[in-house]
Write a protein that binds this DNA or RNA. Structure first.
Lengths: 343, 343
DNA sequence: CTGAAAGCGCTTACAG
DNA sequence: CTGAAAGCGCTTACAG
């Protein structure tokens, strides 16, 4: 059949041993120029490509990274993955991808085992921290276990994590709304139990407290990241907290729905109500009105995760002085647009 | 060190040969119940996990699929990938992911070779068809080559493709705008040279011709999928084709910008101008006004691609009667919302 | 400069 | 019911 040639075939064709072929494809010395050239020619002719599988097995190095994600149908994680593929490509690593069936997937053990059985050299855990789910994984794989880095969740001693400072994000949001003149500021939070949800909420509360505004339960309505949940939350808010003049939504989708409902009801944004989101989706400048938001650079998060993991692979002893820290926290940034600017 | 145990370790611990272990983990007969039980116990205790690498090598089967994508930072491809991971998971296949550095990446040969060297059993090519780029890949890998299926591009004899009927989508859009009373219908097209762009454009033209409306160059402005390009295109349209009363944008992002600009300029949608997009992003019901669009189910596209590829793996002779065809074309669907409905 | 031997961690006939 | 032998496609010492 159309079997791809092996090192043996090439060796036979060249009339040398397989070791000599190996030396050539691995660019090692101790091959006469003439032999080398002849071998290279045959390799080109036959289209020979060394088996990454066989190589990984004998070298005990796969140059492959495992990536565990969840919720690819929502935005956000795709950007993280984009950063991961970019950096992995650059560094010559391949990627084995596993998507969990849902955010709350309890038993991640099988997917981790599957990745390890493929001998990935490290695992990037990019599924969100919800309740205790990270903790469980962390306990199962202590220091001695596979190399892992956790993305977008809480720092943990002795374990590598890379996250955005969501607390700061919430804080900046509250302060900005206050500065724009809002005195009745509400929050539509993300999905329950997520670390990101909690942090944004806490940061928002801290911001209100700093400027001396009260924080009551009427001001907080739970959403679940979806635009439709944002709509419901805003309607609840209009009932329970009609004096609301500023809303910080946990993400841009929910903020979009607030704009939508406000528009339908003739509530003027930003004149009567100021609205902001979180994420800075590419489309937010084109919302009506354009949306003030907290930017988080998820692509950079992905890039950092690959950098960190490769560092772990290359120097398990952390000797280097300019090594990346175990806990990396990226700063979010306020992006001001029309939806909060008093005209 | 913390080396994971191998089949040899388990065999030694059980006092049997490796073949017997192999029989147990592969659930083959010819092992006494007592031995089997003892072995299972040791496996559990040691946490032994067979090496997928070694297995793939000896069996010449990796149960791994290669996926080539591009543009993960834009929406759309993430949904395709979501469908792919879902179905691959279900069928017990692992995924090796490669993202091209950009849409126009010329030389995909190295990434295909990399995937093949990892012995993927098939490749799902989910990067868009732009100009001749697919053709080049197809020519390099004829029938005899690796199993491949191409996503979101033109059918081609003897090659597996799965696409959405973009021509029909454009056609439906034109007809709908006409039915809603528009007589001066414009199109903001997607990125140049993309197959999808061309098809939507052609379908739109065909629709206008069917209802007897003229198609002039003034009515067509090129965008590049981005919201900002949609803004520019609409401004151009307002200059060159001020009588415009209906716009079909090549995707929802560009349509969003049209709504944005219309809103800024006090152009009433849908009263003065009807607007529609393409894709049906999750947020489109919450645009202001909610957006009429052409829905394409990219997740299903991803699912189908895995089904097709596994079928190719399992029956290379295509004996089965209910086999999937080589050319699969999914139908898009009109979703009517406020942005085109005369109130 | 080149090759014979051993081995990575498995599975597949084949013997007993 | 169980094991000795060979081999998947490579690389790594070691000899010459």
């Amino acid at each position: 059949m159309n079997n791809t040639p092996t090192i043996k075939d090439v060796a036979r064709l060249c009339g040398v041993s397989t070791q000599t072929i190996s030396r050539v494809i691995n660019q090692k010395p101790d091959v006469s120029p003439a032999t080398r050239e002849r071998i290279l020619k045959i390799i080109k002719e036959t289209g020979y490509q060394p088996s990454a599988l066989a190589r990984s097995l004998i070298q005990q190095r796969s140059f492959t990274l495992g990536v565990i994600i969840a919720g690819l149908k929502y935005e956000g994680i795709a950007k993280v993955l984009n950063g991961i593929t970019e950096e992995a490509n650059k560094e010559g690593y391949s990627l084995m991808l596993e998507e969990l069936p849902n955010f709350n997937a309890i038993d991640v053990q099988p997917v981790i085992r599957s990745l390890l059985s493929h001998q990935v050299e490290a695992i990037i855990y990019a599924a969100p921290e919800i309740g205790d789910n990270w903790r469980n994984v962390r306990l199962q794989y202590p220091m001695s276990g596979p190399r892992m880095v956790f993305l977008k969740g809480s720092p943990y001693p002795g374990i590598s994590t890379i996250s955005v400072d969501n607390h700061l994000g919430g804080f900046l949001a509250a302060l900005h709304l206050y500065e724009q003149g809002c005195r009745n500021i509400a929050h539509i939070s993300g999905e329950a139990d997520w670390w990101e949800t909690e942090e944004r909420l806490k940061g928002w509360k801290a911001g209100l407290e700093k400027v001396g505004l009260p924080v009551t339960s009427r001001q907080i309505v739970a959403g679940n990241w979806s635009a439709s949940s944002g709509e419901k939350a805003f309607l609840t808010l209009l009932e329970n907290y009609p004096e609301v003049d500023g809303i910080f939504a946990g993400n841009d989708q929910m903020a979009l729905s607030v704009l939508h409902v406000a528009n339908e009801r003739g509530i003027k944004v930003p004149e009567q109500l100021k609205v902001m989101g979180f994420d800075n989706l590419a489309e937010t400048p084109y919302y009506s009105p354009s949306l003030t938001t907290i930017r988080q650079d998820l692509r950079v998060l992905g890039i950092m995760s690959v950098k960190k993991v490769i560092e772990m692979i290359n120097e398990p002893d952390k000797s280097s002085k300019d090594a990346l820290p175990d806990t990396i926290i990226l700063k979010p940034e306020l992006i001001v647009r029309e939806s909060t600017q008093a005209k």
